[in-house]
Amino acid sequence: GTLHLNGVTVKVPSLEKAIKAAKKFAKKYNLEVQVHGNTVHVH
Protein backbone atom coordinates (compact mmCIF):
# COMPACT_ATOMS: atom_id res chain seq x y z
CA GLY A 1 0.00 0.00 0.00
CA THR A 2 0.90 3.66 -0.21
CA LEU A 3 0.54 6.07 2.67
CA HIS A 4 0.18 9.83 2.13
CA LEU A 5 0.89 11.96 5.21
CA ASN A 6 0.39 15.66 4.54
CA GLY A 7 2.01 15.45 1.11
CA VAL A 8 4.64 12.89 2.12
CA THR A 9 4.30 9.55 0.33
CA VAL A 10 5.42 6.40 2.13
CA LYS A 11 5.42 2.88 0.67
CA VAL A 12 4.05 0.40 3.20
CA PRO A 13 4.31 -3.42 2.87
CA SER A 14 0.64 -4.01 3.64
CA LEU A 15 -2.49 -1.89 3.49
CA GLU A 16 -3.40 -2.90 7.06
CA LYS A 17 -0.09 -1.51 8.33
CA ALA A 18 -0.63 1.65 6.32
CA ILE A 19 -4.11 2.16 7.80
CA LYS A 20 -2.86 1.42 11.32
CA ALA A 21 -0.01 3.93 10.96
CA ALA A 22 -2.33 6.48 9.37
CA LYS A 23 -4.88 6.22 12.18
CA LYS A 24 -2.18 6.58 14.82
CA PHE A 25 -0.75 9.64 13.05
CA ALA A 26 -4.20 11.12 12.42
CA LYS A 27 -5.23 10.76 16.05
CA LYS A 28 -2.03 12.44 17.23
CA TYR A 29 -2.44 15.44 14.93
CA ASN A 30 -6.26 15.45 14.79
CA LEU A 31 -6.34 14.70 11.06
CA GLU A 32 -8.62 12.73 8.77
CA VAL A 33 -7.88 9.31 7.25
CA GLN A 34 -9.21 8.40 3.81
CA VAL A 35 -8.60 5.12 2.00
CA HIS A 36 -8.68 5.08 -1.80
CA GLY A 37 -8.04 1.56 -3.09
CA ASN A 38 -4.61 0.65 -1.71
CA THR A 39 -3.63 4.25 -0.97
CA VAL A 40 -4.16 5.80 2.45
CA HIS A 41 -4.40 9.59 2.71
CA VAL A 42 -4.00 11.54 5.95
CA HIS A 43 -4.82 15.25 5.83
Rank of each mutant, 00 (worst) to 15 (best):
V8K: 12
V40N: 01
G7H: 08
F25E: 02
K17R: 12
S14K: 03
K27G: 04
T2A: 09
K28C: 15
I19P: 00
L15Y: 04
K17F: 10
T2N: 11
T9C: 11
E16P: 06
V40P: 01
A26E: 04
K11S: 11
G7E: 05
T39H: 15
K23Y: 07
Q34V: 15
K20Q: 13
G7V: 07
H43W: 13
E16G: 08
N6V: 09
L15G: 00
G37W: 05
L15N: 00
K28I: 10
K11R: 12
K24G: 05
P13C: 15
L15E: 00
P13D: 12
G37K: 02
G37F: 03
G7K: 05
K27Q: 11
A22H: 00
T9I: 15
T2R: 12
K11F: 13
K17Q: 12
S14R: 05
K20S: 10
Q34D: 08
H4K: 05
P13N: 12
V35C: 08
S14V: 04
V12E: 01
V42L: 13
K23H: 09
L15F: 06
Y29K: 04
H43M: 12
N30V: 07
V8C: 15
E16R: 12
L3T: 03
K20M: 10
N6G: 12
K27L: 05
I19L: 11
H41E: 14
L5R: 02
L15R: 02
G37V: 08
L5I: 15
Q34M: 13
E16I: 12
S14Y: 08
E16H: 12
A22D: 00
G7W: 10
I19V: 06
S14P: 02
N30M: 07
P13I: 13
K24Y: 11
H41A: 13
K20C: 00
L31H: 04
L3A: 04
A26F: 06
K11D: 07
K27E: 14
T2L: 14
V33P: 00
N38M: 08
A26G: 06
F25P: 01
L5V: 11
Q34G: 05
H36I: 15
S14F: 09
L31R: 00
A22S: 01
G37M: 04
K28P: 00
